[in-house]
Design a protein around this nucleic acid. Sequence first.
DNA 1: ATTACTAGTAGACGAGTAA
DNA 2: TTTACTCGTCTACTAGTAA
Lengths: 218, 218
Amino acid sequence: MDEKYSFALRKLGLLGAIDDYIAISSRELGDALEMSQQSASKRILELLDEKYIERDLGARRQRIRITQKGADEMKKEYNEYRRIFELTDHLTIHGTIATGMGEGGYYICQPGYMRQFQKILEFTPFEGTLNILVDPEDVGKIDMIRSIAGHNVTGFNCDGRSFGNVVLYKAKIRNIDCAIVVPERSHYMDTLEIICQYHLRRTLSLNDGDHIDVKIDI
Amino acid sequence: MDEKYSFALRKLGLLGAIDDYIAISSRELGDALEMSQQSASKRILELLDEKYIERDLGARRQRIRITQKGADEMKKEYNEYRRIFELTDHLTIHGTIATGMGEGGYYICQPGYMRQFQKILEFTPFEGTLNILVDPEDVGKIDMIRSIAGHNVTGFNCDGRSFGNVVLYKAKIRNIDCAIVVPERSHYMDTLEIICQYHLRRTLSLNDGDHIDVKIDI
DNA sequence: ATTACTAGTAGACGAGTAA
DNA sequence: TTTACTCGTCTACTAGTAA
């Protein structure tokens, strides 16, 4: 995101525009940003153009709200600060074992993916995924992980179906090397799909509902 | 802080320039900031001029480190994001009762301060302060509070001594209204000075070393 | 009051280049 | 290789003003 937008978005966020529409004139925003009414008006138009905010231009006062896209960009910067000031070498996500729809296994078995997984992870994944439902208080950490460069796996087409890009994040579960698989294009996530050399569910005797920690290296 | 500096400082922070000097050429910084070598060089000179960074210009490669002043500015922005994304209506700081140097009591008794305290707090403070040594893990919260506008108390001169500006933050200890008193000009802090209508130490039967929570409204 | 256009200007940027 | 100067261009700003 262009740095000039981040300052304006942050001020709007502080005024509460993340949760709801706020009434703010271009003059007021200009004052907050230490710039003229005219420049603030232009900045608003740019933010609208970039779809970082949406606006309800009333008769007297405009009302502004930060969009999901805008909030995502802000979270990216927030997570950068967290990395700077809460520097640790790993991050633990807590969750419970869940049963997926069985789809994950089908996807990761595709040779187009499997070849790349082997190269990145230096092991051959078991042909299935372990699904972990992330505890609500840790869902925010997923965003944080996603803002950190993982290992990109490029998509492909096969038998007329298209398989999109995915990202791998190396992790450990009870000291066993594994990886989190995340589709590049996906939004809100509360479930992690884990691949591993072993059948984790059997190897660790895990059952649905069991608590589990996933440790991600950052 | 000018927004153009925040982007550069954040990138330097991510590269580890908070903890230590890092070797980075103006070309490398330019690449990271998506600007030319020339502009990055200029930006470095500006950051030096503003004392946000310090530099060790070696024969081959310059080494750069973020100063305390630069880190403080970054923390201010970090805390703004925390306010946006971790929005709660109050914040609790944990600490233990400590014995101050008795100086706090002398200062706050000055009529020049006392009059303003009464007006802001709507009570007459007891003529002494309660000192709380903040737990190390909560020291960061103090910065966060300081970045939020408190109530300003203007300094004055009296009997040839000068008493500086201080800031009040309304708080509660075990549901009793009180306030944190912070000198406007002071840096690293691990101790809170509390003023209250009552003699807190006696009223709550507190002894040195007792654990205590201070709840600050934000 | 608003928002946002046009026009003129100051300053930020990168190319060329010196040290 | 570096860093950082000068200088021309072009962007981003504000003032004035319309709607």
